[in-house]
Write a protein that binds this DNA or RNA. Structure first.
Length: 302
DNA sequence: AAGACGGGGTA
DNA sequence: TACCCAGTCTT
């Protein structure tokens, strides 16, 4: 007679096994998943994948790794070249942080990506998710990887809810820890597999439950997939926002081969002068843009 | 805990 | 048009 604990564990294991089995047959062939991909390659991919879909990261990653195959190569380049190579991936502060990260790796870690969690977390642009992902995918360590995809899978399959909460709750963290296999290789496989399931099948608004390997064991599916339509959307304004204007200013500077005066440019004619000014100020404060000639207001990529 | 921070593919 | 995405960092 199994104890209730064993029953719970059995259900966890069954669900995990279903996802792992599906992943073996359905995993996408991504370059940073190749066994010979360096830890640096994995780190670069993870930073690029922060809030940017795989399809858009793919070409940028290939180009980046060809140009800067090691931290040392990137550290020897200029920050401006890194931001330029980042192109339109979005959130250009990530490019700056990745460049800074390369410098730290060279200055303090022998030009190598560390495997230690605390050291990884100390790096610019590396938070909880990225540190865990690098440990799991680059070093094969047991790490609890909790990204938006994994959170959604846990919320549905285990929690019976349509979507996870806005921020990670303690109970969610505990569940993720409990569900992660103890064996390091299996834990890494689970991380990749659960992320893949969330990205391809258990998607946010149009889940493909008829193709899902765990539908038969999914609490949300069993409950009739209730609540998804009513769930609040987390939309963010875009047109006319500071983010858009910052992006437009940065695009001008990326394409310019000489310092220029941003204010009054025809390309920004539809933006209020005050907003151009404030956005330029914030870009300067972020260290993405540098004032080359204060007298004339000439700026360039930092 | 909440807000700032890009940009484009997809429905 | 609206929505979403392999998050991080700062109030």
């Amino acid at each position: 007679m199994p104890t209730s604990q064993e029953h719970i564990f059995g259900l966890d294991a069954r669900r995990v096994a279903l996802v792992l089995g599906w992943f073996e047959a359905s995993a996408r062939d991504l370059p940073w998943r190749q066994p010979d991909c360096s830890a640096w390659g994995v780190l670069v991919s993870e930073v690029m994948l922060q809030q940017t879909p795989v399809a858009r990261v793919l070409p940028a990653w290939e180009e980046w790794m060809k140009r800067w195959p090691t931290p040392g190569h990137l550290a020897a380049a200029s920050q401006a070249d890194a931001v330029r190579a980042w192109g339109r991936l979005g959130y250009p502060r990530r490019a700056k942080r990745l460049w800074e990260c390369a410098r730290v790796l060279v200055d303090r870690h022998g030009g190598e990506v560390p495997a230690d969690a605390d050291t990884l977390l100390s790096l610019p642009g590396v938070g909880d998710y990225t540190a865990s992902a690098v440990r799991a995918f680059a070093f094969g360590e047991r790490a609890v990887v909790l990204d938006t995809n994994v959170r959604r899978v846990l919320a549905r399959v285990w929690g019976g809810e349509p979507l996870p909460a806005t921020s990670v709750r303690a109970g969610e963290r505990q569940l993720a820890e409990r569900v992660t296999p103890l064996d390091p290789a299996s834990a890494a496989a689970w991380a990749a597999a659960s992320m893949e399931l969330g990205a391809l099948i258990c998607t946010a608004r149009a889940p493909r439950c008829e193709e899902c390997p765990v539908a038969s064991s999914c609490a949300w599916f069993a409950g009739g997939r209730q609540g998804l339509e009513e769930a609040p959307r987390r939309t963010q304004a875009w047109h006319g926002t500071d983010r858009q204007v910052r992006g437009r200013i940065l695009a001008l500077l990326r394409e310019a081969d000489a310092p220029l005066i941003v204010e009054g440019r025809t390309a920004l004619a539809d933006v209020e002068p005050g907003q151009v000014e404030s956005c330029l100020e914030s870009l300067l404060a972020d260290g993405l843009v540098a004032l080359v000639d204060a007298e004339r207001g000439l700026v360039a990529l930092a």
